Computed example of a mutant assay.
Amino acid sequence: MSYAIVGFGKIGQALAHAFARKNINVTVASRRSPEELAPQAREIGHTVVAKSLQDALQADTIILAIPFGEHREMAKALPSWNGKTIIDAMNSFPTPPEELDGLTSSAFVAKSFTGANLVKGFNHLGAAKLATDPIVEGGHRVVFLSSDGEDAFAPVVDLAKQLGFAPVKLGKLNEGGALVSARGQVWGPLIFQDLFKKQP
């Protein structure tokens, strides 16, 4: 399984730290050139490699850590998203809810990435928390996952566990996804909740 993080701002870098901590190879890309990203990527860890956007999009699992307003343009970067797993780590705030066609932000994003298995995840924690070791006092920091495709969960659950997190499935995007959604004046009750799951 190959992984890429698209977007190398605070969230993208925090996730890169999570991969580096576990020595898992990950490609990172953004609007900036690979040459610009490379020093920062190397500083995070030797398993974090800056590449072009087109190279990054060859990965099996792609984490979107870009500003929400850029996702439709990003979706045009590949002619087909079939077979790809997309992890939506974005939040739509401050996009007005009326621009989302009455959908949760991830359901709205899924419309652009036709054919992909889209999972909402890694978006409810701030970058500082996301970057720190998720194993604390014998427990694992929780990440919430939502998807409209039951088969989409498996690779993301596996990745979350590899990174040291405790994945918790919340169900479909319009149900569980709404619990971790930040939109307009309505913020899901699980946004910024820093929860741990103890080992049995």
Rank of each mutant, 00 (worst) to 15 (best):
Y3H: 15
F8G: 03
G9C: 03
K10D: 14
A14L: 08
A16G: 03
A18Q: 15
F19V: 05
N23A: 14
V28D: 01
S33L: 12
S33D: 13
A38D: 14
Q40P: 01
Q40A: 14
Q40C: 07
A41Y: 02
H46G: 11
T47N: 10
V48W: 05
V48A: 05
A50P: 01
K51R: 13
K51H: 10
K51N: 09
S52R: 13
A56Y: 04
Q58C: 07
I62W: 06
I63G: 03
I66K: 03
I66A: 05
P67M: 10
F68R: 05
R72G: 06
A77F: 00
L78K: 06
L78M: 11
P79M: 07
P79K: 08
K84D: 02
I86A: 13
A89K: 11
N91W: 06
F93M: 02
P96D: 06
E98K: 11
D101H: 10
A110H: 04
A110D: 10
N117P: 02
L118R: 00
L118D: 04
H124E: 05
K129N: 12
L130N: 01
A131W: 10
D133S: 12
D133V: 09
P134L: 11
I135L: 11
G138W: 05
G138F: 06
R141E: 09
V142L: 08
V142S: 03
L145G: 08
S146N: 12
S147V: 05
S147A: 15
E150K: 13
D151E: 15
F153P: 00
P155A: 07
V156D: 03
L159T: 05
L163H: 10
P167K: 09
P167R: 09
K169L: 14
K172Y: 04
E175P: 04
G177N: 10
A178D: 04
A178S: 14
S181A: 15
R183L: 14
G184V: 10
V186A: 13
P189D: 11
D194K: 07
F196K: 07
P200S: 12
